[in-house]
Amino acid sequence: MTQSAPMTQSAAAPQSIAMTLSGRIEALLALILAVVWTSPLLFAIWAAFHASTDAVNFNLTSPWILTNFATAWAGAPWLLYFFNSFLLVTSVLIGQFILTTLAGFAFAQIEFRGKDIVFLLVLMQLFILPEVLIVENYAVAARLGLLDSILGIGAPYMASAFGIFLMRQAFKSVPKELDEAARIEGCSLLGVLWRVYVPAARPTYLAYALVSVATHWNNFLWPLIVTNSDETRPLTVGLSIFGAPENGVDISIISAATLMVIAPLLIMFVLFQRQFVQAFLRAGIK
């Protein structure tokens, strides 16, 4: 991670803490905590690349093998699960972008009667979590014929109050002059939204996209409830079924499957580490 300017300043305070004894102890503790924090992942990597008997005995001289991945891969339709997860996060993202852009724009730039009350109603969804409403959301999904479909998994999350709030904040900070200039040029209302506001809010879209993809790639409870076939199950549900104790899979194979599932996100995280962190920040703080 590269350092931003203010960070370097605060670290370069007159008495660098790393110099003092207590500073050194703190640095050591920080490192120990970091190792502890990564250890579940490290042990999974260790287990995934060793035969399960060698893995649990921590037989350090035992050979590194790939057969666990082959066994895990053959044990479930992972490719289909990957595809379903991909389809899910894409459709949720497209739905969210459309709905939150339109609603965020209305709340930010249009004056109309009843706006404040509706805004409060929308904000209520921040606390009436879709996760908690599973009983009746299931009934709604059933009535709309959305059970066991990718759309059914994504639908409750598309009109996200959080997203609407985020887009409203982003659109509010767009300078009014840009808006007026576009109108004088003869742009329609939707034209102004598309040509002026959407490009101006690009960083917010990126941040929202990263948070949304990470959230829905990882979501479990609602997908578990709505799906009941391999054709619609996302990765998380597939992994939970694969690892169920009834299936009697050993720890090395479960570790291999888990690593396969988290690999795309982990690789994305390593590549886009800074953007990820900033995305979570932007999404949270605004």
């Binding site: 991670m1 640095a27 503790l29 920080a30 190792v35 924090w37 990765l235 390593v270």
Partner: peptide, 25 residues
Amino acid sequence: WANGKIPARSFVRSAYFTPTVLPMI
């Protein structure tokens, strides 16, 4: 800690943050 001047700071930060990107399952 992660804001202070410590060795391997970027490793420490990533280590702390990594669980966030993993699914609970």
